[in-house]
Structures are given as C-alpha cells and as structure tokens.
Simulated scan of single mutants.
Amino acid sequence: MSRASRGLTPEQVAALAPACDAPVFDVEVFRAVGAFVVRNLFPAETVAAWQAAWAEFQANTLAARKVGFNKVAVEEPLPPVLATMYESPEHRAVARAMFGPDVGLYNHRFVIKDQFSRDPVFLHQDYCYHLGFPEKASFFTPLSVCGRENGGLEFFLGTHQYGYLGDAGEIDPEAFPAWPSILPELNPGDLVVMDSSTWHRSGPHLGGPDRILADTIIQPASDPSTVAMVCGENGPVNRIDRSAAAGLFKRSRTTRMKELTAELSRLQGGSD
C-alpha cells in the first residue's frame, strides 16, 4: 500500500466514498480511503461451511467463553475450518492485489458481540498495537449480519493518512478535521478490507443476532512479524519471536507503567 497516494482532503475522500462499496475490490480506491467493502465475494457453500463450524464451536465451547480485557475478542482456540479461513481463494486474491504474490499472516481471530460483550468499542486504530512494519490490513469476514443495530463497525475514511499517532487508546475526533465515515450493513459473503491505521469503532449491541466477524490481519510476507503464509513462499528472513514480545525491552513505557502501578498499589496498601 503506497503511502505516496495518501494526500487527500476530507472532501476528496467523501467524494470517493461511494466507490469503496462494490462487488469487485479496487485496490486504488482502497489505498485512497483506507477501507473497502467487497460485496458477495464468497460462494454460498463456503459461507455455509464456515457458519456450520461456527455454530458447533459456539454451542460446544463459547456458551461460557473466557472473557478477557478485550471482551469482543474470542480467546478460545478455533476449530481448523475457522482457523484457516484466510486460505480461501477469495481472501488470497484480494491479498495478492494488495501486497503481491507473497503475503504473510500477522493474526487471525474472531471479534464478536454476544451475551458477554454488548458494549461499544471506542474509536481507535490497530497499528499502534502491532509489531513490525505499518503495511498491514484487516480482512473482516462476517458470519452473521452486521450493522448498526447489533454493533457493526464504523470506519473513518481517509484517517489512515495520519499513520501512527504516537500513542494507543481512544482517539478524540475533535482534535482533527471531520472525516467521512461509513457503517456498512454487512451480510455473510461480504468482506471488509481495512488499513490498520484507519480509525474505526463499533456501537453497542442493541438487538438482533450476535455480531460474528473474523478479523484477519495480513501484511507483506517479508515483515518480521509474519507468523504464517497466506500465499506465496518467500517469508521473512528475520523473525520477531511473538511469544516473547513482552520481553523485547529492558525498559519501556509499558514496563514503567507496571512499575508505577505496583508502587501505587503498595502505597495505597500501606495507608490502610
């Protein structure tokens, strides 16, 4: 994804917004606005197989799922059919259009709004939470209808042009010009592609079915944070040990925050 093309104003991005929702993926529109909705990309039989695997997984494993800090993220190991969704010919074709013949996997998970996670998710970008280089994108693959009522995703087009904002957390849109946003109504068979620097959020689940989305993060295979190949053969020469990511720094903002939190807890405990 070339950064050279990212010089559009909010008004220019708004003019392009209708073109980012279509039956055929347009990589140039995607690069310009930072998100793209591909309609009816996957064959019905492929979607049916994914949905059947999800229904079994939900009934057998997720009825009492483990809810972590990120309540929408499914932490339980996925069954093989769901764990390898990104290997579909349709996913691979879009991935090649973005990054060429060699595409790597950064992460694959599900983000859902179910009985354990009805709350909204604040406005944020994903790149600030990642390792490796910024050339990353998410594939959001819905296995349910996803829209405003059941906590669908809203994308702020053009915001990927800012890149990394220097920190991680809830973005204040009032600190920036007003960028156009879309909240697409998705059906199983659709695909949303999002630049990892694009701002996005989701509203509360107010009704309707659980919102079920696979979230697959892809990147050029040469990125050292690649964990598997989506397509191609030329993976990274050097790799980051993702399992040891928490220990990459001797000192950092994160370790300092942990130290300060521990010190605060000690002082509060001493004053009782």
Rank of each mutant, 00 (worst) to 15 (best):
Tyr164Gln: 06
Thr61His: 01
Gln12Ile: 11
Ala22Glu: 03
Val29Pro: 00
Thr159Trp: 04
Ala59Phe: 02
Val13Tyr: 04
Cys128Ala: 14
Lys113Gln: 10
Val67Arg: 13
Val37Leu: 11
Val38Asn: 09
Asn107Leu: 13
Ser225Lys: 05
Ile240Phe: 10
Arg266Gly: 08
Ser181Arg: 11
Phe30Tyr: 15
Thr261Ile: 00
Ser252Asn: 04
Arg31Lys: 14
Ser222Tyr: 06
Val47Gly: 04
Pro134Ser: 07
Val24Phe: 03
Val237Ser: 14
Asp172Met: 03
Asn150Glu: 08
Arg242Leu: 14
Leu123Gln: 01
Gly158Glu: 05
Gly169Cys: 06
Ala244Arg: 13
Pro120Cys: 04
Ala262Cys: 00
Gly152Cys: 07
Phe122Pro: 05
Val192His: 05
Gly7Val: 12
Ala35Pro: 09
Glu11Lys: 14
Pro23Tyr: 00
Cys20His: 03
Ile182Gly: 04
Ala137Gly: 13
Asp114Pro: 11
Pro224Ile: 11
Met229Arg: 06
Ala178Cys: 10
Gln51Leu: 01
Val94Leu: 07
Glu149Trp: 08
Asp114Gly: 13
Gln125Asn: 15
Val33Arg: 01
Gly132Ile: 07
Leu191Gly: 03
Phe69Ala: 13
Pro18Trp: 00
Arg256Leu: 14
Val27Asn: 09
Phe176Pro: 09
Glu75Trp: 09
Asp223His: 06
Glu90His: 15
Gly166Val: 10
Arg6His: 13
Val145Glu: 06
Val29Ala: 03
Glu154Trp: 00
Val24Asn: 02
Trp54Tyr: 15
Leu157Asn: 08
Val47Trp: 00
Ser252Cys: 07
Gln115Ala: 15
Ala48His: 03
Val74Cys: 08
Pro23Ile: 02
Pro120Trp: 04
Glu174Trp: 02
Ala14Phe: 03
Pro142Gly: 05
Trp50His: 00
Ala97Met: 13
Ala64Cys: 10
His130Ala: 08
Val29Glu: 01
Pro120Ile: 00
Val227Ser: 12
Lys113Ser: 07
Trp50Asn: 01
Arg6Ala: 10
His160Asn: 12
Leu8Tyr: 09
Gly207Asp: 11
Leu248Phe: 14
Lys250Arg: 12
Gly207Asn: 05
Gly147Phe: 04
Ala32Met: 02
Tyr129Gln: 00
Met194Thr: 13
Gln51Pro: 01
Glu45Arg: 04
Ala93Ser: 15
Thr61Gly: 00
Val37Ser: 06
Thr254Asn: 11
Lys66Phe: 15
Ile240Ser: 02
Thr159Asn: 08
Glu263Val: 00
Met229Glu: 08
Phe57Cys: 06
Val13Met: 06
Pro89Asn: 12
Leu157Arg: 12
His91Tyr: 10
Asp126Leu: 03
Trp199Arg: 04
Pro43Gly: 06
Pro10Met: 13
Gly269Tyr: 02
Leu8Cys: 07
Thr261Gln: 11
Phe99Gln: 09
Gly158Gln: 03
Arg118Asn: 10
Arg266Thr: 11
Cys146Trp: 07
Pro101Phe: 01
Pro77Ser: 06
Arg3Lys: 13
Ser265Trp: 04
Ser88Arg: 13
Asn150Val: 12
Glu170Tyr: 05
His108Arg: 07
Ser265His: 10
Pro18Met: 01
Ser265Arg: 12
Val237Leu: 12
Ser197Cys: 13
Phe69Tyr: 02
Gly7Asp: 14
Pro79Lys: 14
Arg118Gly: 12
Ser117Ala: 15
Ala64His: 15
Met229Asp: 11
Pro209Ile: 15
